[in-house]
Amino acid sequence: MIVRGAESVLVQGITGRQATFWSQRMAEYGTKVIGGVNPKKAGIEHLGLPVWGSAVDAAKDQDKPIDCACVIVPPPGVKSSVLDALKAGIKKIVILTEHVPVHDVMYFLSAAREAGASVIGPNTAGIVTPGECFVGFMPAFNARVFKPGCIGVISRSGSLGTLVCLDLVQAGLGISAFIGIGGDPVIGTDALAALACLDADDRTQAVALIGEIGGSMEEEAADYARGMSKPIVAFLAGAASPPGKKMGHAGAIVMGDKGTYAGKKKALEAAGVAVLPTPSMLPGALKERLGV
């Protein structure tokens, strides 16, 4: 999923502490934040923006459909917030909350599928179109980290994604879209879906795929990567992590021979993707493949 500057964004849970800070950053940067939702505070103004009791109510007040919902509510409320956004007809939903019960996630992903909506996350740091807008917890406004350009970046992690973007920009490259997909075991937009999205994006000429140990998402993305003409380079976090332990992200765990670094590296390399040992090597590899 990519969000561009012209698209409208509704922040569910806008009155929270984190949500307030980041909604302000988003609006300052150029994201079209139209307001937010808090069922207990319908009718008030927050950050100079309207607060509705539900996304459905917010949608009724608009001339055009709302493009994107950004969910920053506590874990027990995420399921009902997402269902509310779907009912409001919103087709892009970015879920920043961590620790959402997986059965809830599977429930609203099924509902989203039926509604023809895309979901990013849960537990994502968000998405960025440098120079235009961002939705989430990313330092898009830091010019050392984000500049417009032609590299699409996919990352499960916000902190590591930030480091990669910093490295790319410091090396003179720019970013077409940053897609944070989230660190949970079951997520709406997986590496494969994000890759397909960047493949179809006119502004993206090459992709940096930042994966992690655990699950089989990178292996599935490798199958798609094989057929892509845009060059892809990858870094996979967790080569030095011990097996059987959850490394902070609920999804980052090696069980038996599933989810290992070696298995993912092999699958990606077999698909023609360069897998590099440190993220600092990504810019050089991208430049070489782009011939710049």
Partner: peptide, 16 residues
């Protein structure tokens, strides 16, 4: 370090 992904990566770089 901060964040699960960056911390894992820091460990990887130390090994590397």
């Amino acid at each position: 370090s901060n964040g699960a992904g960056l911390t894992m990566t820091t460990m990887d770089a130390i090994s590397h």
